[in-house]
């Protein structure tokens, strides 16, 4: 599924414009707990979260997450946006809650990160 398709499905807007809106996302992880993101990560995956701190972007970068969607219209601060820009991790924000965002993307065929 491409990033652009994900944005459409979630009615999401880009906080940082992606270099490539056709970036291919292979799976998704819905979590607010960063150790879970580090534990269950899969390559080329999307993080769906309600947390907006700088260390969320760092966690994503270290876990190999390639894009982050913030739920319920949340927006991270400028430092997080700047870091995401440097690391080339496009950020999106959606009015959906984590349940609806997960539900819609799963229905559209996006798998979850593999459970290990």
């Amino acid at each position: 599924m491409t990033l652009k398709e994900i944005a459409d499905i979630l009615g999401a807007t880009f906080i940082t414009e992606p270099d490539n809106p056709d970036l291919h996302i292979r799976s998704a992880c819905s979590s607010d707990m960063m150790s879970a993101v580090l534990y269950y990560h899969s390559p080329d995956s999307l993080l769906i979260t309600g947390l907006t701190q700088l260390h969320v972007v760092r966690t994503a970068e270290i876990a190999g997450i390639i894009s982050i969607v913030f739920v319920m219209n949340k927006r991270p601060d400028e430092r997080a946006i700047e870091l995401a820009g440097q690391k080339k991790i496009p950020l999106l924000t959606t009015p959906c809650c984590m349940y609806t965002a997960s539900g819609r993307l799963f229905r559209a065929g996006l798998p979850g990160c593999s459970h290990k």
Binding site: D32, S35, A36, Y39, Q53
Partner: peptide, 15 residues
């Protein structure tokens, strides 16, 4: 509330 303390840190390091 900041997204840490799920009791996975040390197991994650070991793993």
């Amino acid at each position: 509330e900041m997204g840490w303390g799920a009791g996975m840190g040390l197991p994650n390091m070991k793993r």
